[in-house]
Write a protein that binds this DNA or RNA. Structure first.
Lengths: 224, 224
DNA sequence: GCATATTTGTCCGTATGTATA
DNA sequence: CTATACATACGGACAAATATG
């Protein structure tokens, strides 16, 4: 992850705070964010808050409707498909082109072991976080700051979609063991095989998420 | 490129205007941008300009020094290496996984032909623009909005580095014919071969840019 | 369909802290 | 070391657009 300097600026700190609330699910997709109310609650001026909004809109976490302000983005089916397309391309290729003894390799196993512990504790949201850490680490095998940063953004957006679903066990638990297998293949230097496995894995994950998500949207429609 | 809605907001329009000036080389790397002066010259308020700054900093075109304002980023050698790393991963894989009859395929040839015409007219900057269009189109073969957007950003940053160099013919002209060969391989459905060629091409391009750039930075150093 | 209230978009003035001449 | 210039952040103001009754 791009470490993102300690954020000296107030608007950067505000953006960071909102980002946490977004991926934690405290702010839910579709929710409108009033400038005046939020500025008041965060104890910052409207101008400062607007600067933070710009960044989050740019990251794809918020949407901006002209003269109607900003709202938390509601990930569409198309967005999920798009995100998985990028994941397959970037993650699999980062894995395929990795070289043995890469320093990130150790963190792959650490992430998997963290996920295993959290699974045993039935902390499914924690498992989701650890799994995302695993995938970020896979991308770090490509040794590019810019790729890491853009991938982190991508996962934040995906996390928004996950937060909408109420089935974290189903969504995260099955992948812990697969991550372990991929890690072991990578440790053995079998990168091509690891990449192939990840490819299938992501296709499976995409199908699962889309199925749950489509059902969810249908439910929203009915309730709406 | 993601077309980016007509930008209703003033700060969006300001950002767009600054972006053009940056990639056109009107604003040169290292140049500091005074809030007050720029706001005055663009006839917008400082708050509006600051919102635009946030976006451009986020895109990596401007840097922000605490309490010292923003300046045009000076691409480092490390940045160029990083950018080429992403390019090799993303472009080659987009090409390798493309399928025949993809609609973007036609635009590959259009970009190459545009570059050929501009080369004949000795418009080297134009050749650079057309070549970038070619590479954007390669990425479009992957059918992902998000990948297109992030790649466009990446090329804008690279363009900043190119703008610093005074050798556009040397930097752009040699690649027109290679782009043509890649296009023909793609048209023939030989995507793996096209990707392999692009891989070598990018490695060559990176070496060239780095060599010129290192010399340039050394010259800057000497000139002080 | 209309009048009103709310919210956003944009600008300005200004106090404070930080860097530079 | 002082003075100046500048960025940072705040709050107030008003027009324009939108939502509400």
């Amino acid at each position: 992850m791009p470490a993102a300097a300690p954020a000296q600026n107030l608007s950067d700190r505000v953006a960071e705070q909102l980002r946490s609330r977004l991926v934690d699910g405290e702010l839910v997709p579709g929710q409108r964010l009033s400038e005046a109310a939020l500025a008041d609650s965060l104890q910052v001026s409207r101008n400062t808050l607007r600067e933070a909004f710009r960044m989050l809109v740019h990251e794809g976490l918020l949407v901006h409707a002209p003269n109607r302000g900003v709202a938390v983005v509601v990930p569409s089916i198309a967005a999920i498909i798009d995100i998985y397309r990028v994941r397959r391309l970037v993650e699999c290729q980062a894995l395929a082109q990795a070289y043995p003894q890469h320093p990130a390799r150790r963190r792959l196993r650490q992430a998997v072991e963290a996920a295993q512990r959290l699974r045993d504790a039935q902390d499914w949201r924690g498992v989701g976080t650890a799994n995302m850490e695993f995938h970020k680490t896979v991308v770090e095998l490509a040794d590019s700051e810019r790729l890491n940063a853009m991938f982190a953004q991508l996962l934040a957006e995906l996390r928004l979609a996950f937060g909408l679903l109420r089935d974290p066990e189903f969504l995260h638990a099955p992948y812990v063991d697969m991550n372990l297998q991929i890690t072991e293949l990578a440790e053995a230097g079998a990168f091509a095989q690891a990449a192939a496995m990840l490819q299938d894995y992501l296709a499976h994950s995409e199908r699962t998420v889309l199925a749950v998500y489509a059902r969810h949207l249908a439910g929203m429609e009915a309730a709406g």
